[in-house]
Design a protein around this nucleic acid. Structure first.
Lengths: 333, 333
DNA sequence: TTGTACGCGTTATCAA
DNA sequence: TTGATAACGCGTACAA
């Protein structure tokens, strides 16, 4: 209770400087007109007293917090860290502070975070969480919080969305690969509750195979390196060939390592592709063929869209990133 | 200005429910005593109107924001993401929201972030940033903001610190390695502005070598995978052997890859150790020998310390994590 | 140019 | 059990 009790307030500054608090306010916000003399005096006493305006009171008075809420499932993925970093850099530039809401992949937590975002009074929100859909965004939007949503088609008055297109690449890859002579059978790594992005890729994968009349496999895997590695060491006792599409670098690396550690050759026997590629795709050996979207750019773009939304001048309410295929040595082509 | 203008306020709820706003406040905070009947009525109208209390106004009135400020250089490093995730998980558990201040390695930004932390009225702060030292923490502390600092010895009334000890491991490694027959010469990778943690390791490295009267090398390198990789492809044209100590996994991997791509054998010709090891140490091949501290645990511990600090019952104001050596195949022993 | 007074949405104290 | 009413720290018309 005494926590902030001894903070210097604008009133104390006013008194010490012998002016009214209105004048101090003017000096702080460089608004209105103040004599150079009094301005100096006020600034001196501000420095002397170590006064810092309370963002709380300012926000309450102006209805602006300069806070942006960011909802993510977890900070623990490299691509999300990159995304976060992009947001942070532009946020810093534009004078916004980030408030982080991490849902830890739980639908329940995600809903509770939506509530928190609303009560937190943020000026805007950026959502990159597969647990949250159109309805949830509509909810947050009904409280008049401009929102940018990543990887979800949502629309509304104050809503922008940034689409991540990995699935076109999947279709294309399947098509060209299956067209090549004596290709291996392709396997898609299914992750339970892997989210929209992976689901779309899986659907594209299946659809294209069906269209081509080609056979394929879907194999379940855990969203963890060590678990998947162990599973595939077992798997490769019976299976000696295949072309695997995996969600992330670490999953792809798990399969690749399991293959090489089982005496199989990559890419001759086993080919592996990582869908959401990061810089680690180039670090592991063999290097991973992967689809790539610069998630830092996605973060930046999201933040730009949001500030445009806040300034009421967003023209394109949808921005689309298409992944590019970066060939590594984990595939033949 | 109209941004949040149409938010439902406690007053509107009171009016709609036919009670005073004081009663509504009691219902919200479950404080004081309210008749079950009126309580129900109030809760219904709250739901009907979709009322959400304003954390801003609450904070202003109570002097508590339930916000924790986190200062980091960047979200872009795996070990920092892990750290962040640890903080977030405990924060969620304890009902705190995280406000992120990223300094992007700039001293200037870091100082500005200190100011922002103060104005932001956070209940507490966690600092993991090499740009910030004792004086800066004292500054933030003078505003009565309980603070936990990572990897810096600071002390004060409302300050806790979490120490990361990698350097003891460095000393020990150097000692035992140099004691082994026909060992290679050790090289420490110096990163310009690499921060306190790396500096300490470097000092330990040098000190132990001097003590043993052994020769060693210090080589500058860039804090980027691709740059370091390129540099060392050049480097290995003349140098064919060595034992390298690198800051992070990606730097270590860069050197390791440069070595193998130059036809050198790891660990026979070139041995590599990553100081701040993450899960990627086990993913790359050869696997990286590395020192390891679970940064998620560091985050959790920091958050626990901070909440104890907030509840005035922190006993141990210092917590120390010692790294453990995890042997990979990038070194012989 | 400066000061007064009210409002922002809550909590909390004190009467009723 | 309830309801006025004064803070909380600041912005801002409006008046001086």
């Amino acid at each position: 209770m005494k926590n902030l009790k001894d903070r210097v307030t604008i009133y104390q500054v006013a008194q010490a400087a012998g002016v009214s608090l209105a004048t101090v306010s003017r000096v702080i916000n460089k608004s209105g007109s103040v004599t150079e003399a009094t301005k100096q005096r006020v600034e001196e006493t501000i420095a002397a007293l170590g006064y810092k305006p309370s963002a709380l009171a300012q926000a309450l008075a102006t209805n602006r917090t300069t806070n942006i809420g960011v909802i993510i499932p977890s900070a623990n993925y490299v691509y999300i860290s990159n995304f976060l970093n992009g947001i942070a850099s532009i946020g810093r530039e534009k004078g916004y502070v980030l408030t982080l809401f991490s849902t830890s992949h739980s639908r329940e937590e995600a809903l509770s975070m939506i509530d928190k975002v609303i009560t937190a009074h943020v000026d805007g929100a950026i959502i990159f969480d597969d647990q949250l859909g159109q309805d949830d965004v509509a909810r947050i939007s009904s409280y008049n919080v401009p929102t940018v949503v990543i990887d979800a088609k949502v629309s509304g008055e104050k809503i922008g969305d940034v689409l991540l297109d990995y699935d076109s690449n999947v279709s294309r890859l399947v098509a060209t690969y299956c067209a090549s002579p004596d290709h291996k059978e392709m396997t898609f790594l299914h992750v339970h509750n892997g989210g929209r992005l992976l689901d779309r890729c899986e659907r594209s994968f299946i659809k294209m195979h069906q269209k081509l009349g080609a056979s394929y496999k879907i194999v379940n895997c855990d969203d963890s390196y060590s678990r998947t590695y162990a599973d595939f060491v077992q798997y490769f006792k019976n299976t000696k060939t295949g072309y695997f599409l995996c969600y992330r670098d670490s999953i792809a690396a798990a399969i690749m390592n399991a293959a090489t550690d089982s005496g199989l050759k990559v890419p001759e026997d086993i080919e592996v592709v990582s869908i959401v590629g990061t810089k680690y795709a180039a670090i592991v050996r063999p290097t991973l063929s992967s689809f790539h979207i610069d998630m830092s750019e996605v973060g930046k773009r999201s933040m730009y869209m949001l500030t445009d939304l806040l300034n009421q001048n967003l023209v394109d309410k949808t921005y689309r990133f298409e992944a590019s295929f970066v060939k590594g040595t984990s595939t033949i082509n």
